[in-house]
Design a protein around this nucleic acid. Structure first.
Length: 95
DNA sequence: GTTGAGCGTT
């Protein structure tokens, strides 16, 4: 098993006018963004204001995390965190 | 011009 940190980031408190492309544009200079997804309500189609950004390198993801966490995007403060889905944030080798 | 608090969808 390859020890893989969460290369996927959970971005919240985004402004409703921010798009997936916007996210990718914001996270691209911090690393190679392989995927950017904006989550919205499946019923009302209304933007939930949070999304996910996948990096190709976990170290880039963490760098972008601390770089963009608590940053101002489109005039609103956003939060960035490691995603909870799919990637086991298992950085623990046997100590 | 839609905020809050949150972990989606190919």
């Amino acid at each position: 098993m390859v020890k893989r940190l969460a290369s996927q980031l959970f971005v919240s408190r985004l402004s409703s006018y921010t798009t997936n492309q916007e996210l990718k544009m914001l996270f691209s200079p911090f690393g190679l963004v392989t995927q950017a997804s904006l989550v919205k309500d499946p019923k009302t189609q209304r933007p939930k204001g949070f999304g996910f950004v996948s990096f190709r390198l976990e170290e880039e993801a963490q760098k972008a995390l601390e770089a963009m966490n608590g940053r101002i995007v489109r005039g609103r403060l956003i939060f960035v965190e490691v995603a909870n889905t799919g990637s086991p944030e298992n950085g623990d080798s046997s100590a």
